[in-house]
Design a protein around this nucleic acid. Structure first.
Ligand code: FES
Ligand code: FES
Lengths: 186, 186
DNA sequence: TATAACACAGAGTATATTGCTCTGCGTTAT
DNA sequence: ATAACGCAGAGCAATATACTCTGTGTTATA
């Protein structure tokens, strides 16, 4: 297994989609089905992104998620920490104080400050975090956009708009009122 | 829980002890009891260090472990990878190819090369590894030695030497007084 | 040569996490 | 009123963590 779970991959891909459609409201179901991942699983990770202030949720029919701030103000680190939680790289259990030569009463110098091993880990963790914070969602979205042919992004938007409309039409079918509607596309 | 398990903390502390006594053969039991950690647990992680070529084992009574290489040629990364295994930071499941607009047949451009998200993770992982490879066991041992008062290291060596000798004398002692463990009791 | 301490392989255990499934509730637009 | 939504939380199989314990084979020494 890897250190980051698959939720991080799903989440980041979803957020790139949201970044490519600024202002659009997309439901977690549509995002899941567009990408072929579990609807239920994605529905579990989005509340974490909301609590972290990365996306905002709108409830009710036609509800869904939007980025809570501009895509260039959301870093990969923000997303990883929101989804994985703030797991430290290393958790010191202060075994240095348990050394048998101290006989249960470690002297002050032995437990003062941070253990050398722990210090290395703290430094490594900060460097890792700095690197992850260097890339933003807009940076990622640009990379994807540069790679795909020009028609692709509009295809995706069309797929999502289709989904969005089919929800409106379900209402029309049920209530038997004319006039479908299309809005957004900021 | 943290990304690195407690085995890494135990292992690194043990290896520092071995680095401070170059050439000495120390058993995993002595290392465990000196530091107040589980003898059994430590006995499970040392074979991994041996397979990674960090430490060499000698069997039989008076057996134990020694560093296989000079302490300044063993990096923290070597130890972490030996104990934790080579877990990648991130495991890409290529969900980009599952996009619904491709209809099960992703075009070549979509799956060519490495996904942008994956690329960020690979870069971060390499930076983390570089940082962990920057510190060696001798660097860690120096840090500990600088912090401890002059008498401490010799105290530890004395404790270990005592243990080592008591094994030779256990033969004599076994005749004089009954050993608690093991109820053969002939 | 008997024996005790060792390395090492492996099974066993309790607990936690992962990835995913499913149910139920309150909210909201039509 | 209804259907789709967010969201909280239970459940679940598979895996991982941190140990614990047993058994086998090796080696130095009395
Ligand atoms: S005591 Fe925890 S890393 Fe040294
Ligand atoms: S497809 Fe795996 S990270 Fe993008």
């Amino acid at each position: 297994m890897s250190h980051f779970g698959s939720g991080t991959e799903y989440g980041l891909h979803c957020l790139i989609l949201l970044a490519q459609a600024p202002g659009a409201i997309i439901s977690s179901r549509d995002l899941a089905e567009l990408q072929g991942v579990s609807v239920y699983f994605l529905a579990k990770i989005f509340p974490r992104l909301e609590k972290a202030g990365i996306v905002t949720a709108s409830e009710g029919i036609r509800g869904g998620y939007t980025l809570a701030r501009p895509a260039d103000e959301i870093t990969v680190l923000d997303v990883v920490e929101a989804i994985e939680g703030r797991k430290p790289l290393f958790e010191c259990q202060e075994i240095r104080g348990r050394c048998a030569v101290f006989g249960g009463q470690p002297p002050a110098w032995a437990t003062a400050g941070v253990c050398g091993i722990h210090a290395v880990m703290i430094r490594a963790e900060r460097i890792l975090h700095d690197e992850l914070a260097r890339t933003t969602l807009s940076g990622l979205a640009d990379g994807v956009g540069r790679k795909a042919p020009p028609g692709f992004e509009t295809d995706v938007q069309a797929w999502l708009a289709d989904r969005f409309e089919s929800r409106a039409q379900a209402q029309i079918a049920a209530v038997k009122k004319p006039r479908p509607r299309r809005q957004n596309e900021t």
